[in-house]
Design a protein around this nucleic acid. Structure first.
Lengths: 163, 163
DNA sequence: TGGAATTTTATGGGCGTCAATGGTTTGGTA
DNA sequence: TACCAAACCATTGACGCCCATAAAATTCCA
């Protein structure tokens, strides 16, 4: 497997630790962890959702690629740099495949006791994966499904025509 | 044979395992299983029916193809990704050609003790196949038949072939 | 053409491994 | 020395993997 696919929901323990789903770890393994001394993952607040974007080396390269396309010293590049790099954290992965989400990131994703009940949802998005509060993701998924259904005709046979 | 055709109904055992009908396995073999470490199939809630859409590599490529056209980091892409990747599960196929349907998917298809009596129906749809609760599929099939009859009347083709 | 042997398929059960989760200890630092 | 964080270890439960049985279809031979 070489992409992040599927969703998984895991528990946060009393110390704020969460297990990264094993299939995602497998992808990271192959993809290359972020080198934080030991192994780590890139993680930053998603720009357009109450979630966290995460990934390994490949994600980092992709961000670099995005910025490379913009002219040096342009306002746009500066802004994007700040937006993308500014809030990036490298979360170190412990020996058992767990991470601890820092408070700053947790706030953005609404990973509070109320919003998640001590659980977080990992959502595979191909090149990266996202971390959500379970309830927030449920809502987002529903919205996304509705939207896809709207566009299904445009998309051709991609969806699920029953007949 | 290279398409999923016909319908089959198999049992779910105590562990939640179901045998994929042999003819479907043959198609998957040729088509390419989803690479989930070992062999697996892609499976996600059907958009417009209480059923699950399933397939092998070919189906996965189709999904990838949909997203490939969209620019990275666009809202549209993120939303589609959630709907398509997020809902997808890779069900690993054991050595005997069986899968286990996770709770999240079972809920969508109504694969409860009540709705299926411990059975599931596999419906071939060419490129992919669907998994239904037997009773739900019976209803759907009946509705389809009625509709066909209507059409025949309109078409004036009321010959007499009972078959 | 009928019947027997063989192969394939479906289904049930047992076992081992790995992943998720909780707790404990160790090291560092204030 | 007291507290915080990170590495370590241990338990449990799920899942993957293997084998065994049984039923059905297919093939082969008389």
């Amino acid at each position: 497997m070489d992409r992040f696919v599927s969703t998984f929901t895991n528990k946060i323990d009393a110390k704020g630790r969460v297990s990264i789903p094993a299939p995602f770890r497998a992808v990271l393994e192959r993809d290359g962890y972020a080198s934080a001394g030991s192994s780590g993952i890139y993680c930053y607040p998603s720009l357009d959702a109450p979630a966290l974007d995460c990934g390994g080396e490949r994600l980092a390269k992709k961000i670099d690629g995005l910025l490379a396309g913009l002219p040096d010293y342009s306002d746009e590049r500066d802004e994007l740099s700040v937006a993308l790099y500014g809030d990036v954290q490298i979360l170190s992965v412990d020996g058992d495949g767990r991470i601890v989400v820092p408070e700053a990131l947790r706030a953005h994703a609404g990973l509070t006791e109320a919003g998640g009940g001590g659980q977080v949802t990992f959502v595979g998005l191909g090149d990266k994966f996202q971390i959500w509060a379970p309830v927030a993701f449920e809502a987002r998924r529903k919205a996304a499904r509705d939207k896809v259904q709207e566009h299904r005709k445009l998309l051709g046979g991609g969806g699920g025509t029953a007949a």
